[in-house]
Design a binder for these strands. Structure first.
Lengths: 331, 331
DNA sequence: TTGTATGCGTTATCAT
DNA sequence: ATGATAACGCATACAA
């Protein structure tokens, strides 16, 4: 006799089928059971629309098949894509995902970690900007784009190679004097290697370059000033610009138009991330594409592979260049 | 004496503090406890880094403070934005979110519902395209953009008013002969009312109009053919086009350019959804903006308000028009 | 092969 | 006010 207004339990099923509790458990878990019993139990399950209570399961097994994803938001297309592919990679392995959007708030991030641990998740994948984040030793953790300390693997695209690739592409496309524009977290993180890679690429190709680096500001006026200062006789001193993200590249594209520059004829522009409009349409600009599905797979793999002898501290995945209209087309 | 390699429990805390189990529970839940005891317990909690196990809590309370979001993906910017704002609305109420990306797969959707119910979520918010979706009676459910049956509230923007607004805007901006282009699910759902609203608007403003409606196809060539067929002497028969989504509007924009049409001088274009590049930058096109934060709030509110006398079957939230470069600017 | 009993971590109802 | 104990739903070791 199932209680009103409450989901049926194994006990209800057992009573309905006229068998013992343990038998039901075995049927549910696919353990060997006499055929006649199995049928009766399965019928009772159907009839009552029984669902196992995975909280009770988790309580027993100390395993919940749930992982938490810590990410600033799902509105930024890069985060959105990462979220989706991690979700898919988890689903493939029958894991569920607790979405923890932090909005860049360190306090929120820390709270979410507590929440996640209270929820006894089996692990956490985190893309966070809180340098002082506390994560319990016993919770498996994989970081994206930032090394979080010993024992915590970090997965990222090969940002250094990406910066280098951007420089080489600009050189291949005929640029002589280029610029690198960057804004973002002042934290030491993987994406910051884009700068070093770009410099290396410029040096190896004999490109002269300038840098304009802003830390964590939300005003892009300084970039506009920087560009204006490099105008002479209606012509920009640079014939190629590498922006640290596609987002910045789009903003810079507008600035260039305002300054009367044609892209890509007067100045070529390369961004980073590989963001497509509406997720699947055109690239916003020529860009260094991050391998998001591979990053997602790698995070999940590193997190769930328990018997990994040593977890690699840093995994870099290869980037590619994609034409997106802001560079001269290559044959 | 806490077991190795396993999170501390209330029992561990009790032993550490030298008090009884119940006392620890009271401290954790903020129930009155003698000060000296409270201190000791709190110190023990600190020392052991104890976290309550919310699975055990949920098992007792039959309440988990978790809701599931069923959504096709988080890559499409509209879904991504919805996901983010629902996450925020839940967080505000101390609820967690299980993200269930379905990739439009009805089987996946159904599986996720089972999974969600196994996880004993307190409710489900779903944007799904499976007309035959089975959801247990006793699981609170709120649908987005599609009525799913009696007892299940549906939240959407005012799609009809949005269509109407698009027609009126085009009329205001001087259009005489317009077109409506649509692709998407053939299901009966709320967004389909955009068409009826647009027709109503056209009729009330004396606009002559044509429609081109494709069901659930991924090929946009037919739209290109449709437009080509309406060209004469290098000029398009329409001076205004309303597309069912911003995404389609962007595709159509490219087609128009290919046909040598200038936007907005020759033909004005209005989309629907209010998608911004990179989530926060410019609109891709002039558009009817969905009130995503309000939709999110409403879903969560409807889902969690238990003592609501009657749940409204359909809630429509107001849309607005936003200029995005593909219409003539209004003063 | 099937049934019974115990414990997972927590809360709540009791006595004390 | 505090401590002992039962119960939540399930899995499993053990007994039948």
């Amino acid at each position: 006799m199932q209680k009103e207004n409450s989901a049926p339990t194994m006990k209800d099923v057992a009573k309905e089928a006229g068998v013992a509790l343990g038998t039901v458990s075995k049927v549910v878990n696919g353990l060997p059971v006499g055929d006649s019993y199995r049928i009766r139990v399965e019928e009772a399950i159907q009839k009552l629309n029984y669902q196992v209570n995975s909280y009770a399961q988790g309580l027993k097994a100390n395993k919940t098949y749930t992982i938490a994803l810590l990410i600033p938001n799902t509105v930024d297309p890069f985060y959105a894509s990462l979220t989706h592919h991690i979700n898919m990679a988890l689903l493939k392995r029958k894991y569920r995902m607790l979405l923890c959007a932090t909005d860049f708030d360190p306090k929120q991030e820390q709270e979410y970690i507590s929440m996640a641990q209270q929820n006894k998740v089996d692990g956490i994948i985190g893309l966070t900007y809180n340098p002082a984040l506390m994560v319990a030793e016993n919770t498996p953790f994989v970081a994206i784009d930032r090394s979080m300390g010993p024992g915590i693997p970090c997965v990222a695209c090969d940002n250094f190679a990406g910066g280098q690739l951007a420089a080489e592409k600009l050189a291949d496309l005929g640029c002589k004097n280029v610029a690198f524009l960057r804004t973002g977290s002042a934290l030491i993180n993987e994406p910051n290697k884009r700068k070093a890679g770009f410099e290396t690429g410029c040096l190896s190709r004999g490109l002269s370059y300038e840098m304009k680096i802003l830390d964590d500001v939300d005003s892009y006026e300084e970039f506009e000033m920087f560009l204006s200062e490099h105008m002479e006789n209606g012509k920009l001193a640079f014939d190629g610009i590498f922006c640290v993200t596609d987002r910045l590249a789009c903003l810079v594209l507008k600035m260039l138009h305002k300054l009367g520059q044609r892209v890509p004829e007067d100045v070529q522009l390369i961004g980073f991330d590989g963001i497509r409009a509406f997720g699947t349409l055109d690239y916003h600009c020529s860009t260094i594409v991050q391998p998001v599905p591979e990053i997602a797979e790698m995070c999940v793999e590193l997190l769930l592979r328990e018997n990994m002898l040593v977890k690699p501290p840093l995994v870099c995945l290869p980037v590619t260049y994609a034409y997106g209209g802001t560079t001269l087309e290559t044959q």
